[in-house]
Design a binder for these strands. Sequence first.
DNA 1: GACTGGCACTCGCTACAGTCGAGTGCCAGA
DNA 2: TCTGGCACTCGACTGTAGCGAGTGCCAGTC
Lengths: 340, 340
Amino acid sequence: MGLDDRKLAVLRAIVEDYVATQEPVGSKSLVERHQLGVSPATVRNDMAVLEEEGYIRQPHTSAGRVPTDRGYRLFVDRLSRVKPLSPAERRAIERFLVGAVDLDDVVHRTVRLLAQLTRQVAVVQYPSLARSKVRHLELVPISTTRLMVVMIADTGRVEQRLVELPGPISPEDVTDLRRLVNEKLCGSRLADTPPLVQALVDEATPQLRGAMTTLSTVLLETLVERHEERIALAGTANLTRGGLLDFQGSLRPILEALEEEVVMLKLIGEAESTTTRVLIGDENEIDNLRAASVVSTGYGPGATALGGLGVLGPTRMDYPGTIATVRAVARYVGELLAQN
Amino acid sequence: MGLDDRKLAVLRAIVEDYVATQEPVGSKSLVERHQLGVSPATVRNDMAVLEEEGYIRQPHTSAGRVPTDRGYRLFVDRLSRVKPLSPAERRAIERFLVGAVDLDDVVHRTVRLLAQLTRQVAVVQYPSLARSKVRHLELVPISTTRLMVVMIADTGRVEQRLVELPGPISPEDVTDLRRLVNEKLCGSRLADTPPLVQALVDEATPQLRGAMTTLSTVLLETLVERHEERIALAGTANLTRGGLLDFQGSLRPILEALEEEVVMLKLIGEAESTTTRVLIGDENEIDNLRAASVVSTGYGPGATALGGLGVLGPTRMDYPGTIATVRAVARYVGELLAQN
DNA sequence: GACTGGCACTCGCTACAGTCGAGTGCCAGA
DNA sequence: TCTGGCACTCGACTGTAGCGAGTGCCAGTC
């Protein structure tokens, strides 16, 4: 059964009121607060239909209606327009991000900004290593059999790892190694390095072969496979906003999920492009987050995403406002990183 | 008025029972669960004295007694002995920390381990830069007017920062800069570098002076003054353990405090030595943490602390067990870092 | 046919009274 | 100094009643 315009207007009004007041909304207060041009009784009939279709529900008989996840979905897809940011918000974003001195700083400022503006939990993924290019590889001898490998990516990320060599190595050999590795790998995307690294081993002189083999293993392991992705988190205190009504009484599962980097990456970091994604309640694949919604987007120069960022909050959130903020922040961060 | 041995035994019993059950403890159940050798009435008299002295209190008339912060303090100082760890716990610690590949890894594993063993929120400070020595400084040209400075400390910490030079610089000059900086600074403690950095500027050739001045500013700013300290956090979900009884109903202030690195550093990182500190409730200077207790200690090779670590939980916590765990973990981490 | 006013009904919330029981303070006696 | 006994307190729980927001339905109107 189709929903006519008025029914949609009623749904929109319900979502807006519920988000604002956090209380189930009834037909009477609805007509009072919105110019629907009809009587409460009519609204009630519409509500009955909306409920039958699964867009709203009653917490108890004789309470007002509350949007369901499906209702929010319809609202987000068809009934809301992205709110333009207020000038104050724009200024806040600019001011907050100006003066960041390095990538860590950018990421931390961004995640705090996002948490503050949306009053929710914010998550920012560091620029993905897989999509970064190698700018420089530095080998620093720590002892005769130990090297520290430092990789600097064009996105500003710096990763390091200690390498235990099979045998002692001379400073000259380290210099050679450094030169070889840099010649081969500089400028290539990390995702493309595995064959290059293999080639390095194959082409190495017998003298360097042992060291190169160990080094290559570590490079592949650390930079390509392992904890290549990192995230920053802020605003967990915002979860306590709105008492315990949101999140059906327990923050536990949410906090647990937030601590699992892998989970968060899945949520935030999957975006390949800079489109905005909204996951509402049940749509979430992570059980712990069934009571939450996530608004996320990719950021980066142009339309390709270097990484993802987003916020997590109760399903009862201000979607238009949140979406606008997330997008705006992502755009600014993208520009900022492009400058480097 | 002094407290005789039996009164102290009563206090100990009250603390132990309350920590275990989380319910106010009465005189009758007390004599049932502990071999005090006296009747409930006698215990009641003792309790009256303990209450008068401020060691315990009644939530309401006619409920059992609950320890006050002062009571916990006395318990920790005089009535409890540090529990030896179970073999299982020792094994868990070893297993958890073996196989860590770099400092980040060590810190993350440690903080997770601590959270898991104590079932509380764990905080681990990265080895303090101020107390680290410079192992190597690397300068990587990003463009003709930009350098990335990477500092590697003997503790394994790696910090980087982008430097915008006043004018273009040649690769040869970069090499010279790198050599000069390393000759001067390698091996010295970061806290001692400011005069050395100044000397570098003074001694620089006219050609390098401009670059060196900028570089020195950045070095001082980034490495000595600014975000020199970092922390890792884990186990926030443990705050929800024990319902909302702990933390007087709101996690808000706790979560807020946990997000403030500065606050956490003050709490965890002040220790200069590897002695254990216990802060109970009110003793805490941070208002937001008035309902929490913190057990912290320094870790490092020998008795000098490289950094601090600790846990935060409700005042109603198992102090002997927590103290033992925190100490044991700190010792292992210290050993682990000494190996590098 | 769509909308409206009216009406009976539901049910959560609050207030109030009553009961129960854990725990206390006090006191006289051993 | 300790103990048993006793009266008392007060929170927790239960049951009842009234209130009110909100609903569904129906007959009537445009």
